[in-house]
Design a protein around this nucleic acid. Structure first.
Lengths: 139, 139
DNA sequence: TATTGTTATACTCTATAACTATA
DNA sequence: TATAGTTATAGAGTATAACAATA
């Protein structure tokens, strides 16, 4: 026996379906900004003014650390990101955005999070409910 | 001025955030089944008993048609998928699952759509509301 | 002429294993 | 000894361009 309710299963299926539909958008959006999807993910993880250790990027992306080296190499050669030493542990390098990288990241996030017209199908009440529910779900 | 309400923006941002969080799960899930994420996407698109043209796969994945050739080559060499001629247009090849492929696909979809424990944070009422809203949104 | 799928090519992404430098 | 990041390597994903078969 499974413990999840049928409603939970239905909801999850819809969310997963949404993720897959969403996935197809990234390659096109990335190409417009001359980025690869993977580079978009890295750029997204580096918040302005909040340098992030390379290892943490690998962890969040669920990929091997050796990947991040190459991804950051390319972002750095384009002047979007900089490697900097971490204060505490001299083995750790943290990633920071350059001004150019910061602008590109803002553009990227803006385009990614601009709601599509289909959200207009929902009433304001439904939109509010969706926000409330997703906030609880994603905690 | 933007026409989307702030609620719509918030909702969309949460959905996108969910997609990114979800994205990190696929590589691990795929690896358990000896598949790559891209192969999972292809397998997912081939519904049992519903052969799909290769071109349609490329279109849905928003990738070049030449990619699908290689992806299908590997799936076919593993005995999961078969290329078959399309009845009408002799240029078109359609993809069908083998029995093995069909079983693997079922396993894949089952694991992908098994709701995580976090859905238990929501009440049954909220789960129902989420299903209703997402159904309208994705409809 | 236009379209479907393939091939050739080049680059990026990805994991594994071995390495360096720190801890 | 263990960990963070790099390098070398190999295989997979991806786009572009040129091609064969078909429409």
């Amino acid at each position: 026996m499974k413990y999840a309710s049928s409603h939970a299963c239905d909801a999850w299926r819809l969310l997963v379906r949404f993720s897959f539909a969403q996935r197809a958008h990234l390659p096109l959006l990335a190409a417009e900004l001359q980025l690869s999807p993977a580079q978009c993910h890295v750029l997204r993880l580096i918040e302005p003014g909040r340098p992030i250790p390379m290892g943490r990027v690998a962890e969040t992306l669920a990929c091997d650390a050796s990947n991040v080296t190459g991804l950051v190499d390319r972002l750095e050669s384009r002047g979007l990101v900089r490697r900097r030493p971490s204060g505490a542990d001299r083995r750790v390098k943290v990633l920071a955005l350059t001004p150019t990288g910061s602008r590109l990241r803002a553009l990227l996030l803006d385009r990614m999070t601009t709601p599509p017209a289909t959200l207009g199908r929902l009433s304001v009440r439904e939109q509010q409910a969706l926000v409330r529910i997703l906030t609880r779900l994603l905690g």
